[in-house]
């Protein structure tokens, strides 16, 4: 048997591929291999891999939509922030305006009060000055009368009180 195989090998000039006697063996085992691989693939490997791929693409889609949602939320938040900022700015402006007005009003009343006080003091002072002036004028009259009387007496005259007074009044008026 062994010599027979050897002879066959020599007859195909060293091409083991053309050894027809070995064909059934290879074909049989090839078919077994293919069937095993086919069942391994179609029953276990391919469904598993395709489910994993589907799951992944689903997860990616979900993540993308979630990201889009978050992006929208972020935009909303930004808008809200901008709105709040604008409101706060307006509020600040209003408050500062109000404060300015209040301060101005306070200032105005204080100024008015001060003006009134100053005016009152000035009037008082004027009155005092007028009194003093009046007193001074009276004193001058008396002093002038007395002086005139003394001068007349010194010149040896007899002073007529009525005339002196009239003369002095005329003199003071003039």
């Amino acid at each position: 048997m062994a010599t027979e195989t050897h002879g066959a090998t020599e007859s195909v000039a060293g091409m083991p591929q053309l050894e027809l006697a070995h064909f059934p063996n290879q074909i049989f085992w090839l078919l077994v291999t293919l069937v095993v691989i086919y069942f391994v693939l179609s029953k276990i490997a391919l469904p598993r891999i395709s489910s994993v791929l589907a799951e992944r693409s689903g997860t990616i889609m979900n993540d993308i939509s979630a990201a889009e949602e978050l992006k929208l939320k972020a935009k909303d938040a930004e808008n809200a922030y901008n709105k709040a900022l604008a409101e706060a700015k307006a509020e600040a402006q209003r408050i500062s305006g109000e404060t300015q007005a209040a301060i101005q009003a306070d200032l105005n009343t204080a100024l008015a009060k001060a003006d009134a006080e100053i005016a009152a003091k000035a009037a008082e002072s004027e009155a005092a000055i007028a009194e003093i002036r009046a007193n001074a004028a009276d004193s001058v009259k008396v002093v002038a009368k007395d002086t005139a009387k003394e001068l007349i007496a010194a010149f040896g005259g007899k002073a007529d009180a009525k005339t002196v007074t009239a003369a002095i009044n005329a003199r003071l008026k003039g």
């Binding site: 048997m1 062994a2 195989t5 006697a21 070995h22 059934p24 063996n25 290879q26 074909i27 049989f28 085992w29 090839l30 077994v32 291999t33």
Partner: peptide, 16 residues
């Protein structure tokens, strides 16, 4: 080292 029948386990079988 026997003859190769259709069911014999050969090196082809091993590598398949």
């Amino acid at each position: 080292d026997g003859p190769i029948h259709w069911y014999t386990v050969t090196n082809a079988t091993l590598w398949m």
